[in-house]
Amino acid sequence: MTRIDLNSDLGESYGQWRLGDDETMLDIVTSANVACGFHAGDPSTLLETCRGAAKREVRIGAQVGYNDLAGFGRRFVEIPADELTAEIIYQIGALDGLARVAGSSVRYVKPHGALYNAVVHHREQARAVVDAVRSYDASLPLLGLPGSALLEEAERAGLVVVTEAFADRAYTPEGTLVSRREPGAVLHDPDEVAERVLRMVTEGTVIAIDGSVVPVNAQSVCIHGDSPGATAMAVAVRSRLDAENIDIRSFV
């Protein structure tokens, strides 16, 4: 039976500013990429999200990012490698403390936003992320884009790597994500997204933005929790995969 993990970015509300429907998403996904307070998420929100994940036995991942609340972590930051490593250790530790109070723990790490895109090619920052994970807990898997510098460096360092694909993001012919600044970068139709994910999972391919067929090697599929209509897309994806008897469970 074909197996896949579904993950989503959660815990991204801040104070009275609410983003996404974490409760609904936690009923659908098997892994939760929980913000760590640097790009989004205040302590109360993060604890509540961890409690919701623990209650449902959804695996908690530390979604680490640049220290950029104003930009939601979507702006590249030129930062010395040792500082980036320290900031990521800090984020993992903070979320792990909240997760443990909630009855769970951090089970994997995934970069967020601009950091995620940077470490596809930026090898110095990729090594900084790897150094942070290895220093904190070398048993934690790293979730990232297939073929990225991040996963190459992680494998070289002996870490477990998990490849992912994106349900609602357009792909370039090279297999990277189309920049959010470009038109058509984010998909919105639930049925289209559901069929796309089914193809990723069963055939290992996706149609790129230019119409070409691109191979994808995914152990997990991300459904962004902050996209318009995210819950409708998540419901459609889960229903479509369930209808095909796909085994949906976490990679850890």
Rank of each mutant, 00 (worst) to 15 (best):
A81E: 10
G175I: 06
P183E: 00
I89M: 09
L10Y: 13
D9I: 06
S220Q: 06
L241S: 10
A230P: 08
E152T: 13
R3P: 04
A208Q: 01
A54I: 00
T30K: 04
R127F: 08
S212A: 07
R75N: 11
T45F: 05
Y14F: 15
G93M: 04
R156T: 14
G211M: 03
A94G: 02
H224Q: 14
L151W: 11
D27V: 03
C50S: 03
V58G: 01
L47Y: 13
G103V: 00
V213Q: 10
I209A: 10
R107G: 05
T85A: 07
V77N: 01
T172N: 02
L177C: 06
R199A: 09
V178L: 08
V106K: 08
G175E: 00
T205M: 04
L241V: 13
R181Q: 11
V120G: 07
D42P: 08
D22W: 10
A54L: 02
R181I: 00
L151S: 14
G211F: 00
V29R: 09
I207R: 14
L151Q: 15
V186P: 10
G93S: 06
E152I: 15
G11I: 00
A138W: 09
I28F: 15
L115A: 15
Y108D: 01
R51Q: 15
L145S: 07
E164F: 08
P190H: 01
A40L: 12
E23P: 07
F166S: 05
Q16F: 07
I223L: 15
T2G: 01
V58Q: 02
V109L: 08
L241G: 11
R18I: 14
R107M: 02
L98M: 07
R18Y: 07
D42T: 08
I28K: 12
R18E: 12
N33T: 03
T205D: 03
E78G: 05
A128I: 15
L177D: 03
E12Y: 02
D168S: 05
E192F: 13
V161C: 13
P228Y: 15
P111F: 03
E12M: 01
I28M: 06
V133E: 05
L47K: 09
V206W: 04
V235A: 11
G225H: 03
G73Q: 08
I79C: 08
S105G: 04
V252N: 04
L198R: 06
E78T: 14
T24A: 12
G175Q: 11
S227L: 09
E124L: 10
E192L: 12
A81Y: 04
E124G: 02
M1W: 07
L19Y: 11
Y66A: 13
Y14C: 11
N67K: 11
V29F: 12
G103A: 03
I248W: 00
F76H: 14
S31K: 03
G158V: 06
R59H: 12
N117E: 12
H39C: 09
P43M: 00
H121W: 06
S239I: 05
T30S: 09
G37D: 09
F38V: 08
G147K: 12
G225K: 02
A234Q: 13
R100L: 03
D96W: 00
